[in-house]
Amino acid sequence: MNPGPTTPAFSRRQFLRDGLRLSAVAGAAGLAGAMAGRTQAQTTVWQIDPAKCVRCGNCATKCVLEQSAVKCVHAFDICGYCQLCTGYFEPEPNELTTAAENQQCPTAAIKRTFVEDPYYEYEIDENLCIGCAKCVEGCTRFGNGSLYLQIRHDRCLNCNECAIARTCPGDAFRRVPVTHPYLLKTDTH
């Protein structure tokens, strides 16, 4: 004489439940079918268009990562190898040495090495670079524009909504196919 758990073996409630479940499953299947074609589309990742970057400095602070995934990269084939690099040195430096007070970079992330007279090579240490774009501003405004910002995909989390993109004053962020994840500057000499 044990009564059923709540209801008789087949009740109106259960009928309703079965019907709703069936339609939900059908809906899910329909959604999967409608969207299946879209899964073939190229997966995308965020990238900065260097032509639109306005070097505002947001990249250093707005990334959800403690250390921004945006770093300065160097197009060596565009670089003039200047002795007085306007990306490396403060405007009107005391002297052209690697002393910290002469440098634009707040973290000394640019390594300056002598190649041959009068050329110097500049390399970015990505572990130090914070993506503040101070060097990019110097190089773009007065130099060849060989220093520029890119999202480094070994660091980027590829958020649904890039926190830097949301605040980018130049509207320079866009999604690019994962097969071509960088928007590199190339030599046009």
């Binding site: 160097h74 003039g80 090579e121 060849n144 046009t188 000499h189």
Partner: peptide, 18 residues
């Protein structure tokens, strides 16, 4: 941009790759 000409290395310095 591209204000300054690219360097002409005499010792054959190879450019690093980005």
């Amino acid at each position: 941009e591209h204000r300054f000409p690219p360097p002409e290395f005499e010792a054959g310095h190879k450019l690093p790759i980005t």
